[in-house]
Simulated scan of single mutants.
Amino acid sequence: MYEHKLAENTNSFTKRYNLNKLVYYEAFHSIEEAIIREKQIKSGNRLKKSVYYSFHLVRCTHH
């Protein structure tokens, strides 16, 4: 998180698109698990992703 916030790497996604707010994250025990999950998320359409993240954002802010 700290490295993303600094945005020192000019080739990074966060620097390129001037992103500064994290709205969702998941923790994994291994990089392999994270890659599998990322592929699952990327395979969905925009509407499904929006509904999924909206649900989790509301859930997290109310707990």
Rank of each mutant, 00 (worst) to 15 (best):
M1Q: 11
M1N: 12
M1C: 12
Y2S: 13
E3T: 12
E3W: 06
E3P: 01
H4E: 13
L6H: 13
L6S: 06
L6R: 14
A7F: 00
A7M: 11
E8M: 09
E8Y: 09
N9S: 08
N9Q: 05
S12V: 02
F13S: 05
T14M: 13
T14D: 01
K15F: 05
K15Y: 07
K15H: 06
K15D: 00
R16T: 15
R16E: 01
R16P: 00
R16C: 11
N18A: 06
L19R: 04
L19C: 13
L19Y: 03
L19E: 02
N20L: 04
N20V: 04
N20Q: 06
N20Y: 04
L22F: 01
L22D: 02
L22I: 09
V23C: 01
V23E: 03
Y24D: 07
Y24M: 03
Y25T: 06
Y25K: 10
E26M: 04
E26F: 01
A27L: 15
F28Q: 04
F28T: 13
H29N: 15
S30L: 10
S30T: 15
S30F: 08
S30R: 05
S30Q: 03
S30P: 06
I31V: 14
I31G: 08
I31A: 14
E32C: 06
E33W: 01
E33Y: 03
E33R: 04
A34P: 12
A34I: 06
I35G: 00
I36N: 13
I36W: 13
I36T: 10
E38N: 00
E38A: 03
K39P: 08
K39V: 05
K39I: 08
I41M: 02
I41N: 01
K42V: 08
K42G: 03
S43H: 11
S43M: 02
G44E: 14
G44K: 15
G44Y: 13
N45Q: 04
N45K: 08
N45R: 02
R46S: 12
L47R: 14
L47D: 07
L47I: 14
K48A: 14
K48H: 11
K49C: 05
K49P: 01
K49R: 13
K49D: 04
S50R: 14
S50N: 09
S50K: 13
S50P: 00
V51K: 15
Y52W: 13
Y52H: 14
Y52G: 00
Y53W: 15
Y53A: 00
S54M: 11
H56Q: 07
H56S: 01
H56N: 07
L57E: 12
V58Y: 09
R59T: 04
R59G: 05
R59F: 10
C60N: 10
C60W: 10
T61M: 15
H62E: 06
H62Q: 14
H63N: 10
H63L: 11
